Simulated assay, not measured.
Amino acid sequence: MKTIGDQQLLKRMNRSVLLRLLRAQPGLSRARLAIESGLTKSTVSLLVRELLDEGWLKESDAAVNDGLGRPSTPLQINVGVRALMGVEIAVETVRLVCVSLQGEVLYSNTHALTDGSPAGVCAQVARMASAAHKQLDALGLSLSSIGVCVPGAVDDCTGVVRFAPNLGWRNVSLLPALEKSLAAAGLPGVTVQLQNDADAAVLGEYEFAAGEGEDPLIFVSCDVGVGAGVVLNDRLFTGAQGMAGEIGHTILELDGPLCSCGRRGCAEAFFGSRTLEREGVDMQRAAAFFGVLLQNLWVTFNPRAIVLGGKSCAAHRGFVQAAFEAVKRHADGAGMPAPGLRIARYEELAPAVGAAALALHEYLRPLQPDARTRRARAERVLATA
């Protein structure tokens, strides 16, 4: 029996419980944390002291009476010590953000994608990240992690981009190349993670929501490509090989218009941003197909909410509203309430902010193996294959 390992895991779990409680309910005292978490007062006191020393938490200057006896000191997440960095590699653009542990955008920068090759992309990301890191230093903040997202299917065990048709990539080992470029640019040796753009975006909506996050939650990204990210049972749902949510290549019409993937009738071919930018496109027809896709996601996952983002949704609000109305008509026809439907909280920065949330999502859920552990396991399997 691995007693030491078990104790370390239990400690990580207990720490994550306290952090999640304080993210959802800022201002709880140690005594109130003990009640809400079910942990003993002595355990809470010890863990809070560690979290204060490490800069995760801070105490309020004023004591309050929380109805549990003598006045107590409120606690909250310390947003003045750590920062998270997120990068979105899009088809035409690279966006970078730095956010606090509570999701406040501290810094953002956007540049046109100058070189779409994997090597060129890694070099551009490293340059932008180096400049952002200098800004964090000027603010007195420590960089805790870097998350990167791309418009394609990602195997998060190996860091391989399996399929990104709009970038022209197949089976690109991107994460090791990113880590090498970031290290060469002088970035600190923090965790670097890679994920699909819609998968990242849904984490931003989930982790940085006020109070408890909505679960299940779906984020639909309509940009040059179309994809979905799904949070299910408090976890990002990516599927067996990272392909879950590739809804842009679900077929909505047999023998329909040609898609970038080489098939016909895919969702992307009806309402990807390049399609909607064409002169004479039938927006009502595109919105009707979009409404069908959203309705199918609704009945498949029964989410509490569906969030929309991406260029198509930002540039064509009438198209979005028509799709929302189509979903409501489908719901009325079935005699059921429609799911919550809304535009992304961070708008065009949603995928980058979500990429920043990747490491935080894993840290707050210690029973799920972290990115490095999954990669190490995958490498061992490949080495013995």
Rank of each mutant, 00 (worst) to 15 (best):
R127P: 05
A126R: 04
L9S: 01
L175E: 04
L75D: 00
T275D: 03
Q8F: 11
R49N: 08
G86W: 05
Q8H: 09
V161M: 10
D370M: 09
Q102K: 15
R274K: 12
L341Q: 02
A286D: 10
G168D: 01
E104Q: 12
A123Q: 06
L194H: 06
L341I: 00
A210D: 13
S42K: 14
L47M: 12
M336C: 14
D6Y: 05
E205K: 14
A383P: 08
E179T: 06
E279A: 15
L367N: 06
A228R: 05
L297A: 01
R329I: 11
A119E: 03
L47S: 06
V148M: 07
V125Q: 04
E54M: 09
L203Y: 13
L101F: 04
A331F: 12
L51D: 00
A355Y: 10
V91F: 01
L341F: 03
A126M: 07
V48I: 07
G103P: 12
L52I: 06
H316W: 11
A24N: 05
N14A: 11
E362F: 13
R23N: 03
F237M: 14
P369K: 07
L33E: 00
E207H: 08
L10P: 07
R375P: 03
M1D: 01
A228V: 01
Q193K: 11
A352W: 10
G147P: 13
